[in-house]
């Protein structure tokens, strides 16, 4: 299986002190990989480095092409959609405007119109609230909007930063169900960062365990989930 995202020797951080000390990981084409780890392990930093929000050292390849020197805008234009921590919705704009922004780089109006239908089918509540200001949505609805906005880009890879954060368990289930559907039916690869290791391992095929900026365990999601030592010392369930 080839990888759509290959990362090797990734070093990144804020200011002088690096947070990440040489990560190697990959996301398979059309697959789901997850990065697990405690608070402060460097999960969010990893995603920010992939989408160019911070300037990394090391090599990042997307569909075979080096992207670690590109700007965030150009990385997005190549088909990587990043749902950041805190969701990053445009709170003063309407739901519909948020979605239109997701498709900002696209030049196929017909395709964009179809994708509106598609995300409204996935999340009917967004259609009901399409004229409403995004800031007035509930947490779960905002997460749905954030995912939908990312889908409007027609991404080949979706970076998800803690989609379960601050949401009720029922809504978390629903969101994970839809992520699975997006992955299975449309072949969008996903790189998922999560605190909720159980859910993440269920969805992912590959898993990486991060500790203070280093990958300490890597392997298939099933193997990681089954390893008692890993479970006890890192995943806490």
């Amino acid at each position: 299986m080839t990888a759509i995202l290959e990362v090797s020797g990734l070093v990144a951080g804020y200011g002088a002190a690096p947070v990440l000390h040489g990560l190697d990981f990959a996301v398979p084409q059309g697959g789901v990989a997850t990065i697990l780890g405690a608070n402060g392990a460097g999960k969010t930093t990893t995603l920010r480095a992939v989408s160019g929000l911070i300037r990394p050292a090391g090599e990042i390849r997307f569909a075979g092409e080096r992207i670690d020197r590109l700007s965030t805008e150009d990385i997005a234009r190549r088909g990587i959609a990043h749902v950041p921590d805190g969701r990053g919705t445009f709170v003063h704009l309407s739901v519909e405007e948020n979605l239109r922004l997701g498709a900002y780089t696209r030049r196929d109006p017909a395709g964009v119109a179809r994708d509106f239908e598609r995300v409204f089918a996935l999340f009917p509540v967004l259609q009901e609230r399409r004229r409403q200001q995004a800031g007035t949505l509930s947490g779960g609805e905002q997460q749905m909007l954030a995912i939908s906005r990312a889908l409007m880009l027609r991404p080949r890879l979706l970076l998800m930063d803690e989609p379960s954060f601050g949401l009720a368990p029922l809504i978390v289930r629903e969101i994970f169900r839809i992520m699975r559907a997006i992955n299975a039916e449309e072949g969008v690869a996903i790189l998922l960062v999560e605190q909720n290791a159980g859910l993440a391992l269920e969805l992912a095929s590959q898993a990486y365990l991060l500790e203070t900026g280093r990958v300490v365990v890597a392997g298939s999601a099933d193997a990681l989930g089954a390893d008692d030592a890993v479970r006890r010392s890192y995943l806490g369930y």
Binding site: S51, L53, S71, T72, E73, A76, R77, A81, H82, P84, G88, T89, F90, V91, H92, L93, E97, R100, L101, G102, Y104, T105, R149, L153
Partner: peptide, 17 residues
């Protein structure tokens, strides 16, 4: 719309290109 978005949330704006 892009100008309004960029003024409001530059990071998210860059993420959508």
């Amino acid at each position: 719309l892009a100008m309004r978005a960029a003024a409001q949330n530059p990071v998210s704006s860059r993420l959508v290109g």
